[in-house]
Every structure is written in structure tokens, then in C-alpha cells.
């Protein structure tokens, strides 16, 4: 009897995209396959579909964001959903409303999808327990940013044809980076070998247990890599006790064409943006269309988010 009840409960529960950690390989590949179909559409003159017509998507952003927010906004609209974006940074929170209160209020409006960005790790998980609709994580604290990792994977596949067997380096502020964590899980899952490179103060403890090799030396860490993912170094990290100076960081960890030579000859560069030119990456290198995939990442981001919305939105 109890077993039967349980089965029904699982069936009724909408699926959420909370992190790469919760995905199976098949699910991850499914999203990427689906996304491929949207790349062409996004390049065509008529970009609008009606797949999500009548559906309501709420973008709930507790942290300022330009590219992720606009990407989700466009993705929803191109699929025909009604999209509302709420920037909660300066409204409800200041009035003392908790995440749960906000969630309950929004839930009463019967949305089909909530896309959430929050400064606290685990906030989307908490939200998903309290609402009836699908929750998609658009970045939580330093935990996960699953759609970023998926769009990175799609970008790599688009250029290199595959991920399996590649060697990927993730460099920079690993400690504070959700992008790094999601990418570690996804790239591992898809069969790549992952190196992380950071000064010791920006390297999380026990990171090797996530299935990576860790390096403090760019030369060693980049050796034999096909993809070099640079992370943003937030300016406030410079003020604290993490690093001595911008100059020293750039000297040892900033990506320049000289350092790129440690990687494979045909290595490509990625960056989740926004970039700090001259801090983590040489400005010319960032704009070099022969090696930099930055623009492509943004473009494919919309396709990936369309795929996620389509797959996860409750029918």
C-alpha cells in the first residue's frame, strides 16, 4: 500500500533542474541533443515557436545578472511562454520577506516554471520543496550553475565534435565558483578529464574527491589540455587576504598567449563572463576568434536554456 502511494507521488512531482549532480548521463545528453535543434532556429529570421504557449515562466533573480537573465528571458519568449522577470535584490528581501514567503506568493499565481538565481547555495532546492511548478537553477551561491555547464558542453561539442576523451582545464577562482563545480560534474560525466588550476587560497578543500586533478602551476595544469576555461576573478577577492595583488595574479594565473602554449596546439578558450580583461585573461586573446569561444557560449546559451525549458516544463 505504502509503495503504491509513493509511486503516485513521484509521478505527480514535476521535475526540477537543480544541478548537474542530480542529472543522469542520459538526461544530460538529452538536453544537449534537444539544444542542437534550437541553434539553427535561433539563427533564422523567424525565431518564435509555440511550444510553451500558455505557460508562465517567472525569472526570480535574487542576485544581479545580465547574461543569464536575458538568456532565460529570450529562451522562454522564443518558445512562446509568458515570461516575467523579478529582481528581488531590492524589493521583498528588504521588507524582511523570506525566500519561502516569496515562493508561496509566486506559487499562488500558478506559474509553470520558476527560474531562480540566489546568493545562497541550496536555495533552489529549498524552493523546489515549496512550490508546485518546475524549478530551474540559474546559479546558487557557489554550488551549481547547471545551464552554464550545459551550454559550455554544447559549445565544446559544436567545435570539437565530442567531449569524451578531451582534457579540460578550469582555471581561476575555483573556491567561489559554481560554474567550476557544475562543469566538473558535467565534463566528468561526459567522459572528459578535468584539471583545475588555482592559487591554493582559491582552491576548495578536498576538490580531488570531485574527480579532478588539482594544480597550482599553469604550466603543469594546462599540459595536454584541449579546452581552457577561465573563471572570473571578482574584484572583491583582491581586497581580502586571498591574493597579494592583481599584478601577481595576472603574472601567474592570467591567461596569455605564452601560457596558452602549455596547452595543446589547437586548444580553445572559454569564459562564462563577464570578463576581467587584464586580470584573468589577456584582452587580445579574449577577442581572438581563432581560439576564443566566448561569443559562441553566449549564443548557444539561449539554445540550451530553450531545451531545458522545453524538457522540464510540465506538460
Amino acid at each position: 500500500m505504502a509503495v503504491k502511494k509513493n509511486k503516485i507521488a513521484i509521478k505527480d512531482q514535476p521535475k526540477h533542474l537543480l544541478g548537474i549532480q542530480n542529472l543522469s548521463i542520459a538526461e544530460a545528453k538529452g538536453i544537449l541533443e534537444e539544444a542542437k535543434t534550437f541553434i539553427k532556429l535561433n539563427r533564422s529570421a523567424s525565431k518564435k515557436l509555440e511550444l510553451l504557449r500558455g505557460k508562465t515562466q517567472i525569472n526570480l533573480f535574487f542576485e544581479p545578472s545580465t547574461r543569464t537573465q536575458s538568456s532565460f528571458d529570450l529562451a522562454g519568449k522564443r518558445l512562446g511562454a509568458d515570461v516575467m522577470t523579478m529582481n528581488v535584490t531590492n524589493s521583498a528581501l528588504k521588507k524582511g520577506e523570506t525566500l519561502i514567503d516569496t515562493a508561496m506568493t509566486l506559487n499562488a499565481m500558478h506559474p509553470d516554471i520558476i527560474v531562480i538565481r540566489h546568493q545562497d547555495s541550496g536555495a533552489p532546492n529549498l524552493l523546489s520543496q515549496k512550490v508546485n511548478c518546475t524549478v530551474i537553477n540559474a546559479g546558487d551561491g557557489r554550488r551549481e550553475h547547471p545551464t552554464q555547464a550545459l551550454l559550455d558542453a554544447l559549445t565544446i561539442i559544436n567545435r570539437k565534435g565530442k567531449i569524451e576523451g578531451l582534457k579540460i582545464a578550469i582555471c581561476g577562482d575555483i573556491l567561489h565558483s559554481r560554474v567550476a563545480r557544475s562543469n566538473i560534474y558535467l565534463m566528468n560525466m561526459l567522459g572528459a578529464e578535468v584539471n583545475v588550476i588555482a592559487p591554493k587560497t582559491l582552491m576548495p578543500k578536498s576538490i580531488e574527491k570531485l574527480g579532478v586533478k588539482s594544480f597550482t602551476d599553469m604550466k603543469k595544469g594546462l599540459d595536454g589540455c584541449d579546452i581552457v576555461m577561465m573563471l572570473r576573478l571578482q574584484n572583491e577577492r583582491m581586497q581580502g587576504s586571498f591574493l597579494p595583488s592583481k599584478r601577481e595574479y595576472y603574472e601567474f594565473y592570467g591567461l596569455t598567449s605564452d601560457k596558452l602554449k602549455f596547452a595543446n596546439k589547437d586548444a580553445l578558450i572559454m569564459h562564462p563572463g563577464p570578463m576581467n580583461r587584464g586580470v584573468e585573461i589577456d584582452t587580445k586573446l579574449a577577442d581572438d576568434i581563432n581560439v576564443s569561444l566566448v561569443k559562441e557560449q553566449v549564443e548557444l546559451g539561449v539554445a540550451v536554456r530553450m531545451a531545458c525549458l522545453k524538457i522540464y516544463c510540465k506538460k
Binding site: 551561491g141 578543500k205 578536498s206
Partner: peptide, 13 residues
């Protein structure tokens, strides 16, 4: 605790 779990959960340890 600062360690594998804090790294996975993205929480400060």
C-alpha cells in the same frame, strides 16, 4: 566543516 561536503554543497567551511 571545511572539506568535501562544503565543497560539494558550495557552503563556506
Amino acid at each position: 566543516n571545511e572539506g568535501e561536503v562544503s565543497t560539494r554543497l558550495g557552503l563556506e567551511g
